[in-house]
């Protein structure tokens, strides 16, 4: 049993990890074909996770309702919405054509899901305004430079920036300065962070492949 719990996952991780890395450098079918098959299997595994997720939501929230735990009425709304959409999708929307225009499922998607998603995303505009007022303080020279750059980009990227400086020579117009800031200094900083993050990904991946980092496995303490 210890082999299946302790050793097999580590070996599987190592072999599949090394094979996937090698397939980037070695196009030969002996390496590339198994790697491609594994990638296809990964698609299947990721897709099957949704089934597991639905079952989990039912189990966890069903228990909360049954035992009248805190906020249990909200769980009824959640379960009713989930089961309702599943019934509409499976049985009331033309079978496999449930995504076609005019079906009940599409109606629910367009009139319930889409507005709610857009509403949540729209909250960002308000939150940005309140965060800008509350937290953006010029306490240091760095913060001051950041503030100046932010103001230039904010105004330069919208038509009002063009309108305000339209009579100035082109090198002095706000949109030109905004474009320059976006294309050069911020680009350089982002590249630096991205390179560092990329190395972090490689290091973490290597640790997982080598079995040095295996917290994801259940440690059998007995």
């Amino acid at each position: 049993m210890s082999f299946f719990k302790q050793h097999l996952p580590v070996w599987l991780t190592a072999i599949i990890g090394v094979l996937t890395i090698l397939s980037f450098f070695m196009p030969h079918p002996l390496i590339a074909d198994p790697a491609e098959t594994l990638q296809n299997w990964a698609i299947v595994i990721v897709a099957s996770g949704y089934v597991l997720g639905a079952a989990n939501v039912l189990k966890v929230n069903g228990e909360d309702v049954a035992r009248r735990r805190t906020n249990w009425p909200y769980k009824i709304v959640l379960l009713a919405s989930m089961i309702g959409m599943m019934i509409i999708g499976f049985f009331m929307s033309g079978g496999t054509h449930f995504l076609d225009a005019g079906t009940k499922f599409t109606w629910a998607y367009n009139n319930l899901y889409v507005p709610m998603q857009a509403t949540m995303f729209a909250l960002l505009a308000f939150f940005i305004a309140s965060a800008a007022f509350r937290a953006f303080r010029i306490r240091t020279i760095d913060a001051g430079l950041l503030a100046i750059a932010a103001l230039i980009v904010m105004i330069g990227r919208v038509p009002i920036g063009q309108w305000l400086t339209k009579d100035l020579p082109e090198p002095w117009q706000l949109p030109v300065w905004a474009s320059w800031l976006l294309e050069w200094p911020q680009n350089a900083a982002k590249r630096g962070i991205a390179i560092g993050a990329g190395l972090g990904v490689m290091a973490t991946g290597l640790r997982i492949i080598l079995g040095i980092e295996r917290n994801y496995m259940r440690e059998d303490k007995s």
Binding site: G196, V201, A203
Partner: peptide, 20 residues
């Protein structure tokens, strides 16, 4: 960025993680 990836090593102080 990578400070997130370093956090595991930093908190656990495990030599192999610090080495990476």
């Amino acid at each position: 960025g990578e400070e997130l990836y370093a956090a595991g090593a930093y908190l656990s102080k495990e030599p192999r993680l610090l080495g990476s």
